[in-house]
């Protein structure tokens, strides 16, 4: 059954149509990758799905509940979490504090103000678990802006995972990474449990084909083709879009 449904979504900015009648279905546990040349509207689609941008037409349904039209902060409550194409972290806070904020976001005690946050054992334990699991334990008290780019990119994913989402939207998780970091990140994505459904925007074809169960090609704001990796890689028109247009950056 499909966990995430986008139905006939359209979005325009002052007359410029960025997304046109986009429909998408993501099944539970699926690794669904969205590809498409620059400017195809991939990030805008994420922004529309999470409520960061209002949509003009269509709807988005998560776990059977309509999410479109609701404020952006509700997406996480419905189990859908996202990362950003450009690192969007708390640069002046430590790694640990970043994760504290992410873990606390949906906890009932998020509004408590009569007890220091450091006294909430559950939050500390969850933070510790994430730090250990993702290999940032040693770096927990570093200020985030002092971390390497790759580590910041990793933290970007950890923050999204902290709310224990069942749908995770990853916006170009490997962008700007070195080849070694890209391989590592790909392995991390592959190792994520199937209880987390993934919708990923990715440019690097090696990464795309090593994680995808299903691929959707977005072109000029429209769904051009959706299918299995074999179908997509065998399609001549997709090659034309990518290699004919020459806008694909190959890492």
């Amino acid at each position: 059954m499909s966990l995430l449904k986008v139905e006939h979504l359209s979005k325009s900015f002052k007359g410029l149509q960025v997304l046109r009648d986009v429909s998408l279905e993501v099944r539970e546990g699926e690794r669904h990758v969205i590809i498409g040349p620059n400017g195809a509207g991939k990030t805008t689609l994420f922004n529309c799905m999470t409520g960061t941008l209002p949509i003009n037409e269509g709807k988005v349904v998560v776990n059977g509940q309509q999410i479109s039209g609701l404020p952006a902060y509700t997406a996480v409550r419905m189990g859908m979490s996202r990362t950003f194409q450009k690192n969007n972290l708390f640069g002046e806070l430590s790694v640990e504090e970043n994760i504290h904020l992410a873990v606390t976001a949906c906890k009932p005690y998020r509004f408590h103000f009569l007890k220091p946050a450091s006294k909430y054992a559950e939050m500390l334990a969850e933070t510790q678990e994430l730090l250990a699991q993702w290999g940032l334990w040693e770096r927990r008290s570093r200020i985030v802006s002092e971390l390497s780019y790759g580590e910041q990119r990793l933290l970007e994913v950890i923050l999204a995972l902290a709310s224990k989402p069942n749908i995770l939207l990853l916006d170009e998780p490997t962008s700007g990474m070195s080849p070694a970091e890209t391989v590592q990140t790909t392995m991390l994505i592959q190792s994520m449990p199937r209880s987390i459904t993934l919708l990923v925007i990715e440019h690097d074809m090696e990464v795309v084909f090593s994680i995808a169960d299903r691929i959707t090609v977005l072109h000029h704001g429209e769904v051009f083709l959706s299918g299995s990796p074999d179908e997509i890689s065998g399609d001549a028109r997709v090659k034309e879009i990518y290699f004919g247009g020459g806008t694909l950056k190959h890492a």
């Binding site: 960061t52 979490s81 972290l89 640069g91 806070l93 504090e97 904020l101 998020r110 909430y120 709310s163």
Partner: peptide
């Protein structure tokens, strides 16, 4: 406190705080 930390986070980065829920 959790609330105070949240307030500080908002000063640092509103869009991320919204994305976190």
């Amino acid at each position: 406190s959790p609330l105070g930390k949240g307030v500080r986070g908002i000063k640092e980065n509103e869009s991320r705080m919204t994305a976190l829920g």
